[in-house]
């Protein structure tokens, strides 16, 4: 399927990363000029973070017989774009101290960390933890081993120093789902893959004639920009 944008973008990423990774790793930020497409060039994540994010997204919502997964739907790009929003800087939250990070979970977020911090610290810790146990970073493990590692993060069995593994995992999974199911205007849900999977009609927003009918809704989803699934 050479026309499939996700395949094209993956190929582009590989071409680009082969050239640019050393520079990125050094600078911790993408180089300019070389990247073929803004879509494929993370603006927040470093090359190693990007590799982790792509690999994790591909396991959290895998491509399988039911259709494309998070990677094909552009979820990593979605998350990278989210990192440039006020939300990622913690600006939607009350962020005055004192902070009591070990408060009971029922009292909610009590850390001083923003989502950007959680990703930066969390991915480093995740790759460090994986390297310690498996001798390789997460992206280099096979899928079954990756699933085992993600389970250790989810359950909190993995101990990270600066951000609890379970909190990092929960944010990652939440953002992956957001990217899979939000309107493509935000960069994910390419081809309306998430909506087609479950039968969500997106922005159709007029069901007058279907309220009282016990039938499958027959029309495909439509996005804010008019894209049809």
């Amino acid at each position: 399927m050479p026309d499939d944008p996700s395949f094209t973008s993956r190929r582009r990423f590989l071409q680009w990363s082969a050239v640019a990774v050393p520079a990125l790793a050094a600078a911790g930020a993408p180089a300019s000029g070389q990247a073929p497409s803004a879509d494929d060039r993370p603006t927040f994540f470093s090359a190693s973070e990007w590799a982790f994010l792509r690999a994790a997204a591909a396991r959290l919502i895998p491509a399988d017989a039911l259709g494309p997964g998070a990677l094909e739907a552009g979820v990593p790009e979605f998350i990278d774009r989210q990192m440039a929003t006020p939300w990622a800087e913690g600006r939607l939250w009350y962020m005055q101290g004192p902070f009591v990070p070990d408060a009971p979970p029922t009292l909610g977020w009590q850390m001083r960390l923003t989502p950007r911090d959680v990703y930066r610290l969390g991915i480093a810790a995740a790759d460090g933890w994986t390297q310690d146990r498996h001798g390789r970073v997460f992206a280099e493990l096979d899928p079954a081993a990756q699933d085992g590692v993600l389970q250790a993060f989810e359950s909190g069995k993995a101990r990270f120093e600066q951000v609890p593994a379970a909190i990092f995992f929960a944010m990652l999974l939440g953002n992956v789902r957001e990217g899979f199911f939000s309107d493509p205007v935000h960069g994910g849900n390419r081809g309306l893959a998430g909506w087609k999977l479950i039968g969500f009609p997106g922005a159709r927003a007029d069901f007058m004639d279907w309220v009282e009918r016990d039938v499958a809704y027959p029309l495909p989803p439509v996005s804010l920009s008019g894209q049809r699934g």
């Binding site: 039911l66 699933d147 993600l150 999977l197 479950i198 039968g199 969500f200 499958a216």
Partner: peptide
Amino acid sequence: PGWGSAWKQAVAEYYT
């Protein structure tokens, strides 16, 4: 489960 193919299968099966 909250993720993986089993989750994907379940959201496809149950959402509507």
